[in-house]
Amino acid sequence: MSTTLTRPRPTAAQPARRGRGSLLDALPTIASVAILLLMFVYGEAAYGKIFQYNTISNLFINSSYLIILAVGMTFVILTGGIDLSVGSVIAVSSLTGVFMANAGLPVVIVIPVTILVGSLFGLMSGVLVQYFNVQPFIATLAMMFLARGIASIMATTPVRLDDDSSFRSLSEPIKLIDGPKTNDLVVTPSVIIMILVVVAAVLVLKRTRFGRTVYAIGGAENSAGLMGLPVARTKLWVYLISGTLAGLAAVVYTSRTGIAQNVTGVGWELDAIAAVVIGGTMLTGGYGFVLGSVVGALVIGMMTLLITRDGTVPPEATTIITGGILLVFVLLQRVVLLRKKKKA
């Protein structure tokens, strides 16, 4: 029998190109690790006292809420979505937490409820995106305004957490290594929570069907559906996770500062997105790693640290520098994407 299709085609017998593609996938993340290391080295050389216990401890303590936010954002962005609501959700969550704690409710109730407030907003975003077919940008923008409005109704002035509130215990420092003077390696329960969140997120994304479905949706949502993967359920969960982690970030932040305000978290969603993108996750979805987002958040934290140390850089310049770094990484992603297309 002769078939009717005889036009020349590349043959099936292509040699497999092991690993090359995945190296290219990881390139933006590798670049962000390199930048972070560079910042450390530069900081040590220019200002000193960077490679020491207390600086590193503070970097993690100060970045823990942003890392938690960025982890949630990574899930959303991996599916090709976005969550603009997390900053405002933190305001509502943290006000809820402080009011409840000051009313004398036990911390075992206060903390779960604070987190669940975040989950609720995440769930609403997810339902809007999945079942009402609203663009993620618009759905979470609506949630952002809604949450910010609710926060302003709850309080327009800063609300202080009572000094004796057990809520604060989450930020009690635990000395791991007792260095000379104040140079100790310190963690807080918040940092431990952050680490647990990161580990759990890495495992979920790498080793569960849910996690792989997140990547599949980001790669080709339509295909994922036709492959029989639970697309609707997964997308709902992704926003739920992002909202829940925003609630958790509110707990971590509030326990450290002891203050809740209606303007808490303004622009943090953008910091989280920046951390994710700097960490090498493609905004179009499908490629990226949680650990990259952690590095991205640390890059942002480190930058603040260096600017503070320098003292001559005006604080306004922080956003300019963040913007500059972000731009470099987005361009790097474009280059990677173009290289990939060329290969295909």
Binding site: A16, D25, R212, G219, S223, M227
Partner: peptide, 9 residues
């Protein structure tokens, strides 16, 4: 082809 190009074979 309804597969995900971002994942391995």
């Amino acid at each position: 082809v309804n597969l995900c190009e971002n994942l391995s074979i």
